[in-house]
Design a protein around this nucleic acid. Structure first.
Lengths: 250, 250
DNA sequence: TCCTCCGTGCCACATTGTGGAACGCTATGC
DNA sequence: GCATAGCGTTCCACAATGTGGCACGGAGGA
């Protein structure tokens, strides 16, 4: 089950996305592949509408708009996306910190799908499309807290990587934390994944109680204040509930 | 320059996006391809992280979140996207009609990249990722008005399809209309592409005067009012300028 | 229980993609 | 102004690669 050419084409597509606008030569160096192979792949992707030549420098390639029609199931019809937008802005206005909307990808990782920035000169930064581990982040644990027990067990069985001193790496610590999240209605991350990054998150649940996504307030440790935590948690939780309600109303 | 397997894989990927969550059998019927071929392709796309098995029915496939990391150049770093968000919401609040943010794809078509909905029971609907022809829509002509003359000529040479009675299909009509757009600062579409759909659009220009994107107010004909047009045009134009200014500020 | 339908796995075949080499162009430097 | 270097592009013989008919096993219905 190989399909080498397909796998390679997708890798090249991803590389173009990261480095656009990019030339054939740059890509050959990046992959160590023959020029003709890369060139052929680019032309094929272009013919399929996924790539296009830059308007100013026609030997540079960039991602075509076609990819926008291909969206993850969680965003289908973009009801979640549209529903989340205004509550996220209000939350940002209330706390002036960067707000993230994230969805779980097959319970393997979380993916940032939208962001509203704060106005501080120093901010946390996560690009749309960035991924993060489930057990080590506020956003991930907000989802895990409402996931089936079996899925959490499976995740634990695969092993919990340590990213910082406070990262929960054994099953018991994680389970206790998830109990706390369910009790409080929000999850917290203090330097457990990226150093100096803290976050407070809450899950957006569908009608059946399945976690679809999360909203999170993300800030540098320098602005994290334990005393503000209950207040922050309440705001984030309310925002999550409002998004869930709006999603159904639309 | 073929790469049949790559082209086919991308087609299948797009089909999955449209029909997710979808089974192998449904796809074989859709394409008339052997089961094993479709199956192999799905497994490959899955291994590459672009597809995921549905959590509830593991024989159904859906798009994975990985695709979000692959974004068109116009949205890179999402500066345009983020800059547009709040002005779009304000415009929606001012007119209570659906607002679209669109980008041109290689001067071949316009692609909807973001949307803010109005509250009316009857609305126009365009999904994110939807495309539309340049000559027949307000959004397309807002871009064409600021595109190089040569590009407009090329477009005309390829032929202007007629979608409705009022669609501009000859070069002269189109050129006069583009002159008007430049003079007024906004473009108008009244049933020229989709029946019963009207829109007013303005281009978002970069520092060099190149059109990057458009903002548009879209409404059913029943709510279109010629007397409101100058007012609408002014609002849309101001929003476009505000987005352009914010994009540079960030 | 039998039958059908569907997702999955297998393998001989030849179609398909591969990549080294050569071409033509532009920019740089002597 | 000529030589050189570096680039994107094109070509083609070779064989590695994907193909698709077939068969398996399990789920659901009659």
């Amino acid at each position: 089950m190989e399909m080498k050419s397909v796998t390679r084409s997708l890798r090249i597509l991803e590389a173009v996305a990261q480095h656009q606008p990019v030339t054939v030569g740059e890509l050959t160096k990046l992959f160590g592949l023959p020029k003709s192979t890369v060139q052929r792949t680019l032309v094929t992707l272009n013919e399929a509408g996924w790539l296009r030549a830059n308007r100013k420098d026609t030997t540079r390639w960039e991602i075509g708009a076609r990819v926008l029609a291909v969206r993850p199931a969680a965003l289908q019809g973009s009801s979640l996306f549209a529903a989340a937008r205004e509550p996220m802005i209000r939350l940002r206005d209330a706390v002036n910190e960067t707000i993230h909307l994230s969805v779980p990808d097959a319970l393997q990782c979380m993916v940032v799908v939208d962001r509203v920035d704060c106005t501080h000169a120093v901010r946390t930064f996560h690009a749309i499309g960035d991924t993060s581990p489930l057990h080590a982040t506020a956003t991930g644990r907000a989802v895990l807290a409402y996931a089936p027990r079996a899925d959490v067990d499976e995740l634990v069985a695969r092993g919990l990587e340590r990213f910082g001193e406070a990262t929960p790496v054994d099953a018991e610590t994680l389970r206790l934390e998830l109990d706390r999240v369910r009790a409080d209605g929000y999850s917290v991350n203090r330097n457990q994944y990226r150093p100096d990054v803290c976050a407070v998150a809450a899950a957006i649940l569908d009608e059946g109680g399945t976690p679809l996504a999360t909203v999170a307030v993300s800030m540098p440790e320098s602005r994290y204040d334990a005393e503000r935590l209950p207040e922050l948690g309440r705001l984030v939780g309310e925002t999550a509930q409002e998004i869930a309600a709006r999603r159904l109303g639309a």
